[in-house]
Design a protein around this nucleic acid. Structure first.
Lengths: 341, 341
DNA sequence: CTGAAAGCGCTTACAG
DNA sequence: CTGAAAGCGCTTACAG
């Protein structure tokens, strides 16, 4: 790879001049400008990013920390982040923290982001610990959160209102006549997403004068599997459930699969709703009634705000995005369902 | 952030000694070692990666080039790449090239990888052009290909045998009595994946003495949409089709959705097979009979080989992975199907 | 076992 | 408009 030193030699100017020309910072004649650029182009000059980072203390890199990139919604968020970064001339370092929550790997990766001199950090749907939070603060990493938040809102978060969203789907189910509604797949100990969704469900039920029994809340980890086992557990005891609202589209598919095994057809015998509004929810039959989260926009907006903060010091204001209830075929009015027993 | 200079000062040794201690390269007393490390730890020293990259000309970074991270299988591959990189102490830069194939963005990103001094490049399922290939070669980027290949095999590829795989699913369909079998979703002009799969299908049909009509091959771009529109186009003209093999799980779901609109139920009226074996194929009902590709392993093996090449100069040998036909419920013997009209 | 020095490829005042 | 010089934070012969 050719360096500015060689270009300088060939153009018979100093490296300072080459640097100025290549960065277009002014302070050279048109003639010099053309000559230097011509030589640089001829040799396919590419600036050494490490040298630039070292001297300018600006890496033009942002980091993404994500549990796993293979859950169905993470792709949309990453696309949004990447597009925003690309538009601003930033590159992206990606690191997994692992789904189970391997704290050591998480901390290592946060340190890695710092020693790579990332200018900003985007954390996606992560359950990060106090230790991680402290480390981020000590490292003075500009951070933005997508689809997650801290308990005390210490970091700007780009999210939807989980309580309101779950309240809305549950109310929809109530509005079409269902009363025996279960919720499957959320972890009540997860204060960022699980608990609020359960609260939204519970509030809606209460508003309608229903008191959900304990068995109606089947905990899980948002996965297909937790939908599947959750429904099996539920249905073994409770046969009068007519609708289930799930906390992810994948969990909804798990519920539907388990229902099949009981000879139940969706939505004829059971109404099921998803959450997220991923492509999945439109690709299956019956298509899922679900809550659509604007993942791509959340990723993009969060990153754009972060970048704005980096370049012009504007403070980052988190944003709560509107969600949409997509009414499709996996749930239908109780009086059109074949009743259970 | 503290630097070795400050550590040196505090430990009253030279920066050279600090560097040696921190890298564990030997050449210091136990006492010095302890003292320096203690100070470094106390100040949470983190090595400046840019300085290290600049001086050692080794960035410890590999790059991933991928069209989009939101197709259903890309996540598994990226997880494999990331895990292999993490295990070897490498970090990962991710860049999208866009699904449509924005060549300018592709070339820009290849250049970016070079000026970020990536030590290796992993290209995932990309349709890259001659220009891109030339650029990669000129830049002397160590490159490995996952789930794609070059026409002349100039770059090591980690793939499955598409001809054999499609031959196998088609043969399976034939073996359970189907004869009027269509293929939907492949682009015959795509020489890396589309054409080979069509060939596998055609060969299997020919082997069984069938001559597929032109209408039986519905081109597409592997997407859900192309499955959907492909089946609509097909079925408008040909009502005697009893089975469809698709080139992706998503396309299979598109076919199933379109079939529904014709009042056809899968597999009772129509058998459908997928391709890829993503989680999708197990989450839907009926579960898809499909071809499972070991994406995670492909990503991991390709990256491991690349890293081995980088560190010990071993040449990279591409690898053709075994696939598996997963027999599930979306396809069934012709004589158990309700016949079409 | 340890230090002084050169150098990686850039940027940026400063002086002219 | 242009150049000499210092410096970013490291590594690595070389000499002792």
């Amino acid at each position: 790879m050719i360096t500015i030193k060689e270009i300088a030699k060939e153009a018979r100017v100093s490296i300072a001049t080459v640097s100025r020309v290549l960065n277009g910072t002014g302070g050279y004649s048109q003639e010099t400008f053309d000559r230097v650029n011509k030589i640089a182009d001829a040799h396919h000059y590419l600036k050494n990013a490490a040298a630039h980072t070292l001297v300018s203390a600006s890496s033009k890199i942002i980091g993404i920390l994500i549990p796993s990139v293979s859950t169905s919604f993470s792709g949309y968020i990453i696309n949004g982040i990447e597009d925003a970064a690309y538009a601003a001339g930033y590159d992206v370092i990606l690191a997994h923290t692992g789904i189970g929550g391997d704290e050591r790997r998480l901390l290592e990766n946060i340190n890695m982001m710092r020693n790579r001199q990332v200018e900003g950090l985007v954390i996606v749907s992560n359950q990060f610990t106090e230790t991680a939070l402290t480390l981020i603060q000590r490292l003075r990493l500009n951070t933005t959160l997508i689809s997650t938040s801290t308990r005390n809102n210490s970091l700007p978060a780009f999210v939807i209102d989980d309580v309101a969203a779950m309240h809305a789907v549950t109310s929809y189910l109530l509005s079409i006549g269902h009363q025996h509604i279960a919720i499957i797949g959320a972890d009540p100990d997860d204060h960022v997403t699980g608990a609020p969704r359960i609260k939204g469900y519970r509030d809606a039920m209460m508003d309608a004068g229903m008191v959900p029994s304990i068995a109606w809340v089947q905990r899980g980890d948002f996965s297909y599997e937790s939908g599947y086992t959750g429904f099996k557990r539920l249905y073994s005891g409770e046969h009068d459930i007519t609708a289930v609202c799930c906390v992810s589209d994948e969990a909804a598919l798990g519920v539907i699969a388990a229902a099949h095994e009981f000879g139940l057809s969706v939505p004829d015998d059971l109404s099921v709703t998803g959450f997220d509004g991923t492509r999945l929810s439109e690709m299956v039959r019956p298509r899922l009634t679900t809550v659509r989260q604007p993942f791509y926009r959340m990723g993009k907006a969060g990153t754009t705000a972060l970048l704005q903060h980096i370049t012009s010091g504007e403070s980052i204001n988190g944003e709560t995005f509107p969600f949409e209830i997509e009414i499709r075929e996996s749930a239908k009015p109780l009086d059109t369902q074949r009743r259970g027993e």
